[in-house]
Each structure stands twice: as structure tokens, then as C-alpha cells.
Amino acid sequence: MRSLITRPRVAAALLAGSALMFSPLSGQATARLPVGSADCFVPPASASAKGGHGPDTREVSAAEQKAIEARTAQLLKAKAARGIAVPKGALAAATVPVYVHVMRDAAGNGDVTNKQIADQITVLNKTFAGGESSAAAETGFSFTLAGTFRYNNNQWHKDKQSSSYRKQTRKGGANALNIWLVDFAYLGIATFPWDYDRSPGTDGIRVHFDSLPGGSIANYNLGETATHEAGHWFGLYHTFQGGCTETNDEVADTPAQSSPTNGCPVGRDSCSLPGLDPIHNYMDYSYDSCYNQFTADQSTRISQMWTAYRA
């Protein structure tokens, strides 16, 4: 999760409170804890608030990380035996249906425009196609807006009752990306693909509505928060996962880094292991303007995780 810094941090999940004025408007558009309990994730009070970053997925320990890799390998082997596999050197190309849930309050706050939503889909397509840098990898995935749903609910707007509202509003299957636009102390929060089978109703990403293209959050209003959170949804860790270790984020071509990046500090090198910190990678915590790439090995991992958990 990416988190913000101009307002105090609040817990973003399972907050009590009754729903106010639930009224879904137009439906279809016309154009981080044990596995499975991501809903209970409560970031530490010391994490940064609006304007910066903070933990945006449930914490995965080194032991669990190892178990997830073993489970993924087993699933890929079983699917390959059934003829569901990606040829070596190829990508698991797919078009992902995207359902956008605009969580407004009773006064209409948080009501992003259709153009902002369309622009966000454009950003996703550009970033996952490697379109922001010659060093970026093509992932094989594209996105299409499958539906926009607008709600008037003061509690949901503030991401309260998040487990409940997601289960009530989520659309599609494991292959569908649901994006809930809310007003909270974070930039975004995501679920991992390996948690889908235990909690399919909460699968997806929550994004601050003002992080969309044209939003008002300085340095984080180009739509790259959704790219970062979608990266987690596809199965990528932060580039600083595990710190200065060889295993770190399970991706060989992202140099290890000891801690998240803030801003765009060119030349930052926080580990003695080879390589500068991957500050331009979408899975770091850099400014939106600093981001420009997924790597080739991240692209391969996305394909593997998609095949194992979402295909």
C-alpha cells in the first residue's frame, strides 16, 4: 500500500459503523496477518499518512514467502498437466475487465469524473505495456473498463466497513480487477492473488480517489498508484521486500534495496549488493513522475501468478 502525509493516519479496515444512504446509481458503463485475512490489516500508527507511502499490503514473512513460492510451483505444475501453461519465453497475455466503484459521501465528495476513470484505464494500459520507458518490459496484459458503479454512503466513502462493502459490491471472478475509490489516509491498498481462494469477496484494490489522473494529491496524481496496487494484485512484492537479501522480492532483475524510496533520488544505493535501488520501478514508493517500468522478470512473475491463481 502507498500511504499519504497531510492528515493523520487511520485504520483502513473493519471499522465499525452503520451505512448511510446506500444508493447505487448507474450500473454497467456504456463506453496486509495470516493468509486470507487482509481485511484485518491495520497499519502501524507510525506509518506515513497522506502525501507519502506506507504498507499497502498485508505483511508477508520470509517463511510465508517461501511457502507461497512452493505453493505457486505446485499449482503451475498441476495446471500444466491439464494443459494450462505458458510456453517458456512467452507471456500469459489477457485482457482484464476492470470494475470501478466510486464511493461518494452524501454530499457527493469523491465523485470522480468519467474522464478521470477513462484516463486511469489508459494509464494502466500504458504502464503494463511498457509504454513509459525504453527500459520497461511489456507484461502482456491490457485493461478494459467493464463497469462503473457509483454509491452514496458516508461510511464507505471513508473506507469504513471495508470488508462488508467490498463483498456487497465486488463484480466478476478471479480475473476481474475491482477498484474501489475512497477517501482514506492512504494512497492505496491491495490484495494478493494467493489470498483470492480464501477471501474472493474482498479481492481487488482500494485507491484514494484523488490519486487518479487530475487528482489533487501533489506528486501522486498521475494514476500510478493504481498501477502500483495492480502490481500487487498480480502477485508482485515491493522492490524492497526482504531488504538487503538475495531473495528479496523473488525477482532477479530488481536490485535489492534496504527501504522504500521517497521522491526520486537518482543514484540511491541502499544495499551493498550489486545495483542501484530500482527507484523507477512501479513497485517502489517513488513519486508518480519517477515511475516508468516493470522489469522483464516482473513480467514473467505476473504471468506465472496469473496462471497459478487467476487463469
Rank of each mutant, 00 (worst) to 15 (best):
A81G: 07
K79M: 01
K79S: 08
V100P: 04
G83Q: 10
G83A: 11
R82W: 01
K79V: 02
Y99H: 13
V102F: 02
A73S: 12
K88M: 05
A85R: 10
V96K: 02
A94R: 15
R71A: 15
Y99Q: 05
P87R: 15
V96D: 02
A94E: 10
V100N: 08
K79R: 15
T72I: 04
R104A: 08
G108V: 05
G89S: 11
L76R: 03
T72S: 12
A107Y: 04
Q74M: 11
L91H: 10
L75I: 15
Q74R: 15
L76K: 03
A81D: 10
D105V: 00
L91D: 04
A78E: 14
A107K: 15
M103V: 02
V102K: 06
G110F: 06
D111N: 15
V102Q: 05
A106F: 01
G108E: 05
Q74N: 12
V96E: 03
A107E: 11
A81V: 01
G110N: 10
L75Y: 02
A70S: 14
R104T: 13
V98N: 04
H101Q: 12
A92V: 09
A92W: 07
V86R: 06
R104W: 02
V100F: 09
A107G: 11
Y99G: 00
A106R: 07
R104Y: 01
Q74P: 00
G110T: 07
R71F: 04
A94K: 13
R104D: 10
A81S: 10
V86C: 13
A78D: 13
A90V: 10
V100K: 06
V102W: 00
A93Y: 02
A81W: 03
A73W: 02
L76E: 06
K77T: 10
L91F: 11
Y99P: 00
A106E: 06
T72N: 07
P97N: 06
K79T: 03
A107L: 12
Y99K: 00
M103K: 06
A80Y: 05
T72L: 14
V86I: 15
A73Q: 11
A70K: 12
A94P: 01
D111S: 13
P97A: 08
A78C: 04
R82P: 03
Y99W: 12
V98G: 05
A85V: 12
G110D: 11
K79A: 09
M103S: 02
Y99C: 03
T95E: 14
Q74K: 15
R82H: 09
A93Q: 14
A70I: 03
V102D: 08
V86P: 12
A73I: 00
D105K: 05
V98L: 08
V100W: 05
L91W: 03
A80T: 10
V86K: 04
R104Q: 15
A73P: 01
P87T: 12
G110S: 10
A73D: 09
V100Y: 06
V100E: 09
V102G: 08
V100C: 09
D111Q: 13
H101M: 07
A73F: 01
I84S: 00
I84D: 08
L91N: 06
G110C: 07
T72G: 03
R82F: 04
A70H: 09
K77G: 03
R71L: 14
K79W: 05
A85S: 14
D105P: 00
A93N: 12
A106G: 05
A94L: 04
A78Y: 00
G108T: 02
V96W: 04
G108K: 05
A90C: 06
A107T: 03
G83H: 11
A70Q: 14
H101A: 08
I84M: 07
A73V: 01
